[in-house]
């Protein structure tokens, strides 16, 4: 028995290869990026240590770090809110058993499957003035065909956010659906007998119960949008001007186009810290709300939210 016990203790070795991989391709790069952010490096010669100069440069006059960060946050918020609202409504509809639910579920996830660069290139063409789909449709209803959506610096960020919502809503929907279907039917039946309307049931039963999942998915969406390079690069490459230049695009530009790896690393570090802060705050929220949700509804079942929480647990 003792031998078994020892053997099972040693099983943890099985996790080593993956941990080694993470150490090499996540931990080391993070440390290295932090180091590079303190250097001047053109990608060819040896990095030169220059202290916090990069940070002063990107935050100082002429540096546009804060503009980029604000833009990234705006993109992230608009996209995440869109995804969460539509995704939750779609999940609620499926969970309510609308006719054709199976079909809808398969179709609504479809945009997530299409490669992001394909979606990007498709939508760029769809938003072109005079030749694109969006203006074609607007023209059909008499609203003009010359809107240059992506050339308009005020509209471009929202157009790209819209495409993000188009792509990512299916993902949020599926996870929300899992959480909603974990709510016992009896609760709804009881509520219905009490004469609660559909809306009332949605707001006072479904939403409170799935709140931790909702927060988790929102956190994931925020992380995803911080990785939104492929979509932006496929659609606008950050333009017009800098109006869609979110953080990963700016880092790519600085590093691989301008050959300014030090400054790019500094920007990446700021982005990473920001995201880490958001994660910590939201994880706290997820934990506390899953606790209160349990107390309030008294119906928390281990499995109802555990799955989605798996992604959020442990971020502290």
């Amino acid at each position: 028995m003792l031998r078994t016990h020892l053997r099972r203790r040693l099983l943890v070795i099985g996790a080593l290869p993956a941990v080694a991989g993470i150490a090499l391709l996540v931990a080391y790069p993070v440390v290295r990026t932090v180091y590079l952010s303190l250097t001047s490096w053109d990608g060819a010669s040896a990095p030169k240590f220059i202290g916090t100069t990069n940070f002063r440069d990107i935050t100082g006059q002429g540096g546009d770090l804060w503009a980029t960060v604000l833009r990234t946050i705006r993109f992230s918020l608009v996209a995440t809110i869109g995804v969460m609202v539509i995704g939750t409504l779609l999940a609620a509809a499926l969970s309510a058993g609308i006719p054709g639910a199976r079909f809808f579920r398969v179709v609504w996830f479809l945009p997530m499957v299409v490669p992001v660069s394909v979606s990007g290139v498709y939508w760029v063409n769809a938003f072109q003035p005079t030749t694109g789909l969006s203006n074609y449709l607007l023209g059909k209803v008499g609203l003009g065909t010359t809107h240059a959506w992506l050339a308009d610096p005020h509209a471009a960020l929202y157009v790209t956010s819209f495409v993000w919502v188009w792509i990512s809503t299916g993902f949020a929907m599926i996870i929300m659906l899992g959480a909603m279907n974990g709510v016992p039917v009896e609760i709804y039946e009881a509520a219905e007998m009490d004469g609660c309307s559909v809306l009332r049931r949605f707001f006072s039963i479904t939403l409170p119960v799935v709140r931790p999942t909702l927060a988790t998915v929102a956190l994931l969406e925020i992380i995803f949008t911080f990785n939104g390079f492929t979509l932006i690069w496929a659609m606008t490459q950050g333009g017009p001007g800098t109006s869609t230049q979110i953080l990963p695009v700016e880092v790519y530009r600085q590093a691989f186009i301008n050959g300014n790896y030090g400054a790019a690393s500094a920007q990446a570090v700021v982005g990473g810290v920001l995201l880490l802060l958001v994660s910590v705050v939201m994880t706290r929220f997820i934990r506390s709300s899953s606790g209160s949700g349990r107390a309030r509804a008294g119906l928390f079942r281990r499995r109802a939210n555990r799955s989605a929480l798996a992604a959020g647990q442990g971020i502290t």
Binding site: L25, F226, A268
Partner: peptide, 12 residues
């Protein structure tokens, strides 16, 4: 490991 965006990792 899941939280770090790719942008922090790409250069290294």
């Amino acid at each position: 490991a899941l939280v770090f965006p790719l942008v922090v990792l790409v250069i290294p």
